[in-house]
C-alpha cells in the first residue's frame, strides 16, 4: 500500500516568502492545476484549495485513515502525501465515487447497514472499502476486519461497516449494481 510518486520540479512561488509549486493532476476525472506552498499536503489541497471537504482530517499523522483517497486506483493517506507528489496522477475522493449521479453501491450499503454514526470517518472508510474489494481482500469477515483496521471509527460502527462491505462483496463487489 506504499505509494511514492516522483516529486516534480519546483514551480514558481505562489505564496509570499515560501517556495511554491504548481501541480497538474486529475481529481475525480477533472484535470486540475493547483499552485501552492510546497508544504501543502494532498489532504489540505483537496479541502482548502479545491473545496472538496468530503475527505476528512482526523490526525494528520497517517494513523486514523479518515483521509483515505485513491491515487491511481490505490488507497492512499492524503495527509501523508504532498500535493506536489501527485503530478500526473489520478486522484479519486468520496465526491467522485457516484456514477451518473447515483451513489456507489458501497455508499448505499453503508446507509442501509448504518455503517457510521457521526459520519466523520465515513468517507475514508468507504474509500478503503471500495479499494478492499478491488484488492480482493473482502472474502471473509476476518479479512475485512484485518484489512480495514487502518480506518478508525471512534463511534465504533465496526460491525455495521463489516456488514456493509460483506453485503456489497456478496452482491458482486465493485461491480455490484444495487
Amino acid at each position: 500500500m506504499t505509494f511514492t510518486p516522483e516529486v516534480p520540479p519546483a514551480a514558481p512561488d505562489s505564496h509570499p516568502g515560501v517556495a511554491g509549486t504548481t501541480t497538474a493532476f486529475t481529481v475525480n476525472g477533472t484535470p486540475r492545476s493547483v499552485a501552492a506552498d510546497t508544504r501543502v499536503t494532498l489532504l489540505d489541497a483537496l479541502r482548502d484549495l479545491l473545496a472538496l471537504t468530503g475527505t476528512k482530517k482526523g490526525c494528520d499523522q497517517g494513523a486514523c485513515g479518515a483521509c483515505t483517497v485513491h491515487v491511481d486506483g490505490r488507497r492512499v493517506l492524503a495527509c501523508l502525501t504532498l500535493l506536489a507528489q501527485c503530478e500526473g496522477r489520478e486522484v479519486t475522493t468520496i465526491e467522485g465515487l457516484s456514477r451518473d449521479g447515483r451513489p456507489h453501491p458501497m455508499q448505499e450499503a453503508f446507509v442501509r447497514h448504518d455503517g457510521f454514526q457521526c459520519g466523520y470517518c465515513t468517507p475514508g472508510q468507504i474509500m478503503s472499502a471500495v479499494a478492499l474489494l478491488r484488492e480482493d481482500r473482502a472474502r471473509t469477515d476476518k479479512d475485512i476486519r484485518e484489512f480495514m483496521s487502518g480506518n478508525l471509527c471512534r463511534c465504533a460502527a465496526y460491525p455495521n461497516i463489516v456488514a456493509a462491505i460483506r453485503d456489497v462483496a456478496q452482491r458482486g463487489g465493485v461491480d455490484a449494481d444495487l
Binding site: R47, T53, G54, E95, P103, E108, F110, T122, P123
Partner: peptide
C-alpha cells in the same frame, strides 16, 4: 435509514472544520 445518511456517505455533510 438515517435521514442524513446520503449526505454523510457522499462527503456532503459539513462539519465545523469544513467551513471557510
Amino acid at each position: 435509514d438515517r435521514v442524513d445518511g446520503p449526505a454523510k456517505t457522499a462527503g456532503q455533510a459539513r462539519y465545523p472544520s469544513d467551513f471557510d
